Simulated assay, not measured.
Amino acid sequence: MLNRRNMGPWLNHSLVGDFILLGIFSHSQTDLVLFSAVLVVFTVALAGNILLLFLIYSDAQLHTPMYFFLSHLSFMDLTLICTIVPKMADNFIHERKSISFIGCGLQIGLFVTLVGSEGLLLGLMAYDRYVAINHPLRYHVLMSQRVCLQIVGSSWAFGTLDGLIQVVAAMTFPYCGSREVDHFFCEVPALLKLACADTSLFDTLLFSCCVFMLLLPFSIIVASYAKILRAVISMNSAQARQKALTTCSSHLAAVSLFYGAAMFIYLRPKRYRAPGHDKIVSLFYTVLTPMLNPLIYSLRNREVMGALRKKLNRWVTDCQK
């Protein structure tokens, strides 16, 4: 590890120099089509999450714990895509691939905070589904407003703490050589490859942190759904079993999308990581997943579709007056 007293020039250079984001697309015809597809997905994700937030907060029938959690999930997805895609698009269109040192730090902090918070919230939402199916008569007692605020607050708190730790640690390393980040946004593992200091200790800490932030909520999901499955099997009515499984299907789909990509990125040993693979999978859960989540929770949910129809009917009626 380099002595911090001897890092003065390097630290000064790190603080004033820009990083270069190599991106994921070139300006070939194929990549232009793919970039256009990303912009379409971004637009759909933006519209879908904003619409879902509007429906949840404007329709009294959606003022329940599950939709309260879903509103925060949509807000996290909305903020995540706005943290990543606009800068990526600006760099691609203007062929200006630089990002400032401070901008890189902000992007890291927001990205880690949002991904960590969303992972924990998805895990704790499994507990909500467990209570709804296993203790339906006590649901509103066990999932009181206080409990819901504690679940959401703890998700944001742990995610924010994780983000602060990673951004402070990553931004204090000296970057005195190449400043080309082989990614389309400032991601900590890609950035650490440019550090002119021994990062092995922080790499180990980062891996341990990722394991904790992924496996803790994942263990809550497994435990909750194990009890849910036991309760569903013991139900006498096929209709009741179908209703219970339908209640969980949207959450399971969102969990599969998020944890499948996140575990592939962060739980692989370093020697098996390839920048090309990481960029493609990162594109999946930073752009595609935020688009799919509102679609999963709206198209597969009668209450959300009912609220949407009411708003559309009211809008048509107002227009006809």
Score class of each variant (00 low, 15 high):
Leu214His: 13
Thr204Leu: 13
Arg179Val: 00
Thr204Asp: 10
Cys196Ala: 09
Ala190Thr: 02
Arg179Ser: 00
Leu201Ile: 12
Gly177Trp: 04
Phe202Glu: 10
Cys210Met: 14
Asp182Glu: 07
Phe185Gln: 03
Ala190Met: 09
Glu180Tyr: 01
Leu191Ala: 07
Met213Leu: 14
Arg179Asn: 02
Leu215Tyr: 03
Phe202Ala: 14
Cys210Gly: 08
Cys196Phe: 03
Glu180Gln: 09
Leu215Gly: 10
Ala197Asp: 14
Thr199Trp: 03
Phe207Glu: 13
Leu206Tyr: 15
Leu201Trp: 10
Cys186Pro: 00
Thr204Asn: 10
Pro217Ser: 06
Thr204Tyr: 08
Leu191Lys: 03
Asp203Gln: 14
Cys186Met: 06
Phe207Asn: 11
Ala190Phe: 03
Asp203Ile: 14
Leu206Met: 15
Lys193Tyr: 02
Pro217Arg: 04
Leu206Asn: 14
Cys176Pro: 01
Ser200Ile: 11
Met213Val: 12
Cys209Thr: 06
Phe207Pro: 00
Leu201Gly: 11
Pro217Lys: 06
Phe202Met: 13
Cys186Ile: 02
Lys193Glu: 05
Thr204Lys: 08
Phe212Arg: 01
Glu187Val: 06
His183Ser: 15
Leu206Thr: 15
Pro217Ala: 08
Pro217Leu: 06
Cys209Phe: 05
Leu216Tyr: 03
Thr204Gln: 09
Phe184Trp: 09
Leu214Lys: 11
Val188Gly: 07
Glu180Asp: 11
Cys176Asp: 09
Leu214Pro: 08
Glu187Thr: 01
Asp198Asn: 10
Ala190His: 02
Cys210Gln: 12
Phe185Gly: 04
Cys210Glu: 09
Ser208Ile: 08
Glu187Pro: 00
Tyr175Asn: 04
Leu192Arg: 07
Leu215Ile: 15
Ser178Asn: 10
Glu180Thr: 01
Cys210His: 11
Leu201Glu: 12
Glu180Lys: 02
Leu192Asp: 08
Ala197Gln: 04
Pro217Phe: 04
